[in-house]
Amino acid sequence: MSTDDILTLIAGIFLLLGAFLSLAAGVGLVRFHDVPSRLHAATKPQILGLLFVLTAIALEAQSWSTLLAVAPVLVFQMLTAPISAHMVARAGYRTGNLRKDELLVDDLGEAIDRVTRTEDDAVGDMVDPDDPAAASSARPPS
């Protein structure tokens, strides 16, 4: 077996791992019960799966320039994935797309309750006042 064959084999195994994570994400999406849990399932192939596949590409091409060309893909994904995950999780919590009965600890709910209870006369400062969505959801019912 030449080095070329070995590298091809390693690249194949990396592909297999990436594909496995992708499958597990699909299974997690179907089996988990609420929005945040499904988000956890979704982040696996987004980062580690991508990392595996990009490594496989670089191994197969066996050139430094390919590695450099592939690096920005990971950089972009790492910059953008947390933003969309956070936006969805926040929207999910605000719209009640969350199984509260399956929560062991709910510190955020307690914090919102605290603000709602103590701040009948003052406007809530727990959330960013610049964000209208945040400010209004933390305000007590009038």
Binding site: L39, T43, H86, R90
Partner: peptide, 11 residues
């Protein structure tokens, strides 16, 4: 923390 599956920043 967000990039690692299993933890997610909600707020």
């Amino acid at each position: 923390l967000s990039l690692v599956p299993g933890s997610l920043v909600v707020e």
